[in-house]
Amino acid sequence: MNNKFRFLPIATFLGFAFLYVPIIVLVVFSFNKSKLVTVWGGFSAHWYGELLQDPQILGAAWISLQIAFISASLALVLGTLAAFVLTRIGRFWFKPLLSGMTAAPLVMPEVITGLSLLLLFVAMEAMFGWPAGRGFTTIVIAHTTFCLAYVAVVVQSRLSDMDESIEEAARDLGAKPVRVFFDITLPTIAPALMSGWLLSFTLSLDDLVIASFVSGPGASTLPMVIFSKVRLGVSPEINALASLMIGVVALGVAIAAWQLLKSPQKSKA
């Protein structure tokens, strides 16, 4: 018994060390003065300055942020609709198909999704002349499609956990279906919508493979630029970029945690 009690915390500690040591090393060495990334040459914020003056990275970041914002928002609407249809609307003949199509993008290897969408866009262009060429729009469509699945999963689980009699009560008191959705359903699933949107935003911002397939000249996203740089070896600039992105996420998580810790105390009072 004692044995097990020592084994578990040690195993867990080592597991977390495995998850976090690389990130910590990355952040520490982003403040390295030396150009040799792996040899400590003193503290400096020099590479952050370099990063903020690199037009290629800044341009790609701006494109990625726009794509992520639009894709996440579209995916939020479409994913919520899909989740709503799957949990709240009774049987119709292609419901199993819709359910399968909603879940499948989650596990589909990215190379397949990327390839298949590219081939579709090429075929569509040949047939209808749209989308003319590939770039911003096609990346948005591709990202919306796979982010939609994540939103649908998150929202679906919230909707099926939700007590349906609350919606019935609203109908019973005279609210029409659209009203019920806006008055009752939406406020109840708001946290799930928020996390669905954020998840989509980060997934889109992070995607390399699908974007590489469906993008065209002139639309290089941040991961594409990072990938081409990283293939040539480690660069102190990328360390700085990674640390900035990790910093933003850590801040976001800290705020979310603070909100979570705050809210139960409020309701107790």
Binding site: D163, S165, I166, E168, A169, D172, L173, D183, P187, T188
Partner: peptide, 13 residues
């Protein structure tokens, strides 16, 4: 008609 639900179904928000 109106209904009183077993779970009460009060709107939590």
């Amino acid at each position: 008609t109106n209904m009183m639900f077993q779970s009460y179904a009060l709107f939590p928000h």
